[in-house]
Amino acid sequence: MPRTGILPLSARGPASLHVLIVEDEARTSSELRVGLEAAGLEVRQASSGEEGLRLCAEEAFEAMVVDVMLPGISGLTLVRRLREAGNDTPVIFLSAKGDLVDRLHGLEAGGDDYLAKPYSILEVVARLRTIARRVQGRQQTGRMQVADLVWDAGHRQISRSGHRIDLTPKEYALMTLLLEHAGHVVPRGQMVQAIWGMDCAVDPNAVDVQILRLRRKVDGPYPVKLIHTLRGVGLLLEPRETA
């Protein structure tokens, strides 16, 4: 169950988000709504995956909070169907299951973040605003180019020299993080947050594997390398000619 309470004024933002809560447990849904509305967010509620799909077809939401275990259509299936239909509304999954495998399943289904119960309403609000800002920034820019690499944020596509690069969800999350911070160093902890959706103890080898796979796809065939490692610091995206 969420840890609730009236949010301090410092937690309330001037910009209101239109948020859909998809949660079948009435008390949890009610507590979430009270907490989010206290933070200045506009909230709609659905008690099943089917109702969530219907509301998404009728209204445009800026973010969603979705319970993984729903009657009928599960939260994972709900988000997969939205993504297949081209709906990129940012989603935070909520679940009683908080181990790494479950979190990865949520992210691979198309979720943007994952919180295990019990959670803090303050944290839900902060994460909602973070992912909403991230998506809004992408929509405003539309397309971004670094050397011959083009990122079409609206269609979630990345290409180099006119050739589309097929990335896994984790690779895409890491690449978009680097693009959003092009020319600036991205520390390892921020990469973990982007790939796994949380700050947690992740095997360093798992991070290295994602970096290696991404570098092979993005830089492997090209003379101009874009992804560079600053040992002990992080990754940097900028074009550099190979010697």
Score class of each variant (00 low, 15 high):
residue 70 L to P: 09
residue 67 D to H: 13
residue 59 E to T: 12
residue 46 A to D: 06
residue 75 G to P: 07
residue 52 G to H: 01
residue 67 D to L: 10
residue 46 A to R: 05
residue 56 C to K: 05
residue 76 L to M: 12
residue 89 T to D: 00
residue 91 V to C: 06
residue 70 L to V: 08
residue 85 A to Y: 07
residue 52 G to I: 00
residue 44 R to W: 13
residue 45 Q to M: 14
residue 55 L to T: 03
residue 80 R to W: 00
residue 82 L to S: 09
residue 46 A to S: 13
residue 64 M to I: 05
residue 50 E to R: 15
residue 76 L to I: 07
residue 92 I to C: 07
residue 64 M to L: 14
residue 78 L to S: 05
residue 78 L to C: 05
residue 82 L to H: 09
residue 84 E to I: 09
residue 55 L to G: 02
residue 81 R to P: 03
residue 47 S to W: 10
residue 69 M to R: 13
residue 64 M to T: 01
residue 83 R to C: 04
residue 66 V to E: 05
residue 77 T to K: 14
residue 90 P to H: 08
residue 58 E to R: 14
residue 53 L to Q: 09
residue 71 P to I: 00
residue 70 L to A: 05
residue 69 M to C: 12
residue 49 G to A: 06
residue 68 V to T: 13
residue 52 G to W: 00
residue 65 V to M: 10
residue 64 M to K: 05
residue 86 G to P: 04
residue 67 D to K: 12
residue 77 T to D: 15
residue 88 D to V: 15
residue 46 A to N: 01
residue 57 A to S: 09
residue 79 V to Q: 03
residue 57 A to I: 03
residue 76 L to F: 09
residue 51 E to N: 10
residue 89 T to R: 00
residue 88 D to S: 13
residue 66 V to F: 05
residue 90 P to D: 04
residue 68 V to A: 11
residue 85 A to H: 06
residue 72 G to W: 06
residue 92 I to D: 02
residue 88 D to P: 15
residue 73 I to F: 02
residue 92 I to N: 04
residue 82 L to R: 12
residue 58 E to S: 07
residue 80 R to C: 05
residue 80 R to H: 02
residue 46 A to P: 12
residue 79 V to I: 12
residue 69 M to A: 13
residue 60 A to S: 14
residue 60 A to I: 15
residue 70 L to T: 08
residue 70 L to Q: 02
residue 80 R to T: 07
residue 81 R to A: 10
residue 58 E to D: 08
residue 70 L to M: 05
residue 63 A to F: 07
residue 82 L to N: 03
residue 73 I to N: 03
residue 82 L to F: 09
residue 79 V to K: 07
residue 88 D to Q: 15
residue 57 A to P: 03
residue 77 T to P: 03
residue 62 E to Q: 15
residue 75 G to N: 04
residue 73 I to Q: 07
residue 44 R to T: 12
residue 71 P to D: 00
residue 63 A to R: 04
residue 92 I to T: 09
residue 49 G to L: 10
residue 73 I to C: 08
residue 76 L to R: 04
residue 72 G to K: 10
residue 45 Q to N: 15
residue 73 I to M: 13
residue 91 V to L: 04
residue 74 S to N: 08
residue 66 V to M: 06
residue 80 R to M: 03
residue 71 P to W: 00
residue 70 L to G: 05
residue 67 D to A: 11
residue 85 A to S: 13
residue 63 A to W: 07
residue 88 D to K: 11
residue 44 R to I: 05
residue 51 E to P: 14
residue 81 R to I: 01
residue 60 A to N: 12
residue 66 V to S: 07
residue 70 L to D: 01
residue 81 R to Y: 02
residue 73 I to H: 01
